[in-house]
Amino acid sequence: MLDTLLALAHRLSRYSARAGGAMILFAAFMVTFDVLSRRILGITMSGSDEVSGYLFAIATALAMPYALLMRANVRIDAAYNLLSRRVRYGMDLFGLILFTIFTLMVTWRVALTVQVTWENDAHAITPLHTPLIVPQSIWLAGWVLFCICLVLVLAGTLRAGWRGDLAAASRLSGVRSVEEEVAGETAGVLPGKVKEA
């Protein structure tokens, strides 16, 4: 059951990261168009900075689950790789527990913000007069997905530790090895083929 949920979380996180990437690209094109039209035509697109701010916040929240599941978050691992597998497991588990608690607290505060926005029918004090419930709800969805992924990774790490399978625990929550980094960077490159510049 847990493996099925983790596979589903991987799939959902991949889609959410792609959606976040599309939002960043859209924001970049929108701001570029605004700058060029202001420079060339003397016309400004009102609200591009506001919309790009919403998109950046949402894209960040949507990308966090993918970064977690791919173990792409930055870690200082100079001494980590010198430690025994059991000590590394303990450190990973401790860090994951703290990270989960922190993320649950942040998500709770985000949910309270969305609730206040809904109750007050809050709108941005900008020319666009954006109903804030729209960007904040999508932002909250990203945080909720992140919490779910964290809980699943924590449960999987605990289960692997309970079974004594520290290698599986490391694949879920440990620092990526050099081999994994290389495999991730070369994924999709066919053996014997060299990409032309």
Rank of each mutant, 00 (worst) to 15 (best):
D3E: 15
L6N: 06
H10E: 15
R11D: 13
R11S: 08
R14W: 13
A19W: 08
G21S: 02
G21M: 03
F26C: 00
F29P: 01
F29T: 07
M30H: 11
V35R: 08
S37R: 04
R39S: 14
G42W: 09
I43T: 14
M45R: 04
D49Y: 15
S52I: 00
G53L: 07
Y54L: 09
T60P: 00
A61M: 06
L62V: 07
Y66G: 00
A67G: 08
L69Y: 03
N73D: 15
V74W: 13
R75N: 14
I76H: 15
A78Q: 14
L82P: 04
L83N: 14
G90N: 07
G90I: 03
G95N: 04
I97V: 14
I97S: 02
V106C: 06
R109Q: 12
V110K: 00
L112E: 07
L112S: 07
V114Q: 00
V116P: 01
T117S: 08
T117F: 04
T117L: 05
H123K: 15
I125Q: 11
L128P: 01
L128S: 01
L132Q: 00
P135A: 02
I138T: 06
L140H: 01
A141V: 07
I148G: 02
L152Y: 03
V153E: 09
L154R: 08
T157D: 10
A169G: 07
V182C: 04
A183V: 05
V189L: 15
K193T: 11
V194E: 12
E196Y: 11
